Simulated scan of single mutants.
Amino acid sequence: MNAIKPTWPAPGAIHALVTTRQGGVSHSPYDTLNLGDHVGDDPARVIANRQLLRAYVPAEPIWLKQTHRIQVSTPDTRTQFSSKPYEADAAVTNIPDEVLAIMTADCLPVLLSNADGTVIGAAHAGWRGLCDGVLENTVSEMLKLSHQSSAANIIAWMGPAIGPESFEVGEDVVGRFQECGLHDMKQCFLPISNRPGKYLADLYQLARDRLKRAGVESTFGGDLCTVLDQGQFFSYRRDGVTGRFASLIWISS
């Protein structure tokens, strides 16, 4: 199995990795390491791919049913609602060896840790989730798990997502962010020449804006485009029918 390790100054107890599309058993168009069980792939091959991943993490990942909303799965809610997969677009924990996982194929995965490595988070941040506050909610739930932490002591790493050269949006998306109080519209949305009402959106910059609003100043990553790098990543915008890769984070015991 091929994987990418985030480059960020996370504490020694924090481990993270991002799978690629390489090293699995799925056939085209899910070739080969598809981890999504909701995209039309052979379920047996998805199970086999998840078993390949299991050798790299200390426990079975907490798989979420992601719905482009802002619900955060916490240790308490996972105890109260034991049915799986948990319906949420982010997860937090302070429990060692509990593996948080976000699956994407263009949306932005964001991994977070506090300064002492005792609380972590993972968020699925598409443009809807960013606009509605999924990152702010994730930071808020992390702080509830460690009363000694502050948002200023949290660092974030932004994983592979559709890059600013590939993410075309319309005025509806721009308007939504105007309504939710985006600080720097010009830096996040570049008008496309000769195409009125069309813009190139910078998902990474949008995430930085929302993280800063939540009090998180230290952000890393944001340089891997799923659309342009067909060899490593699945991309829904590029391919339509495709697989999903995972961004995972855990605290070592």
Results as ranks from 00 to 15, higher is better:
M1V: 14
N2C: 05
N2A: 10
P6A: 07
P9I: 05
A10S: 15
A13G: 13
L17V: 07
V18R: 05
T20W: 06
Q22V: 15
Q22G: 09
S26W: 09
S26D: 13
L33G: 06
N34Y: 07
D37Q: 08
V39M: 14
A44W: 01
R45Y: 05
A48I: 00
N49S: 11
Q51K: 13
A55N: 12
Y56E: 13
A59G: 03
P61A: 13
W63S: 05
L64M: 13
L64I: 13
K65E: 03
Q66D: 00
S73Q: 14
T74V: 09
D76G: 05
T77E: 10
T79E: 12
S82R: 14
S83H: 08
K84E: 14
P85M: 10
P85V: 11
Y86L: 14
D89E: 05
A90Q: 11
A91P: 02
T93H: 03
N94H: 14
N94D: 15
D97H: 05
D97Q: 04
A101T: 09
I102E: 05
M103I: 07
A105F: 06
P109I: 03
L111I: 13
S113T: 15
N114Q: 09
A115Q: 11
G117R: 05
V119K: 06
I120E: 03
I120S: 07
G121N: 06
H124G: 03
A125H: 09
L130N: 08
L130D: 08
C131V: 03
D132A: 13
G133T: 06
E136R: 09
V139E: 10
S140C: 13
L145Y: 01
H147V: 07
N153G: 15
N153Q: 14
I154Q: 07
A156G: 07
G159F: 04
A161I: 02
S166G: 03
E168Q: 15
V169K: 04
V173W: 03
V174K: 08
R176N: 13
R176T: 07
Q178R: 13
G181M: 06
L182A: 05
L182R: 02
K186N: 11
C188S: 15
F189N: 01
F189C: 06
F189H: 02
P191G: 10
I192H: 08
S193W: 06
A201M: 15
L203F: 02
L206G: 09
D209A: 10
R210G: 04
R213V: 00
R213L: 12
A214G: 12
C225A: 06
L228P: 00
Q230V: 11
Q230S: 14
Q230K: 15
F234E: 02
Y236H: 11
R237A: 10
R238I: 06
D239I: 02
V241D: 12
G243H: 11
S252V: 08
S252N: 14
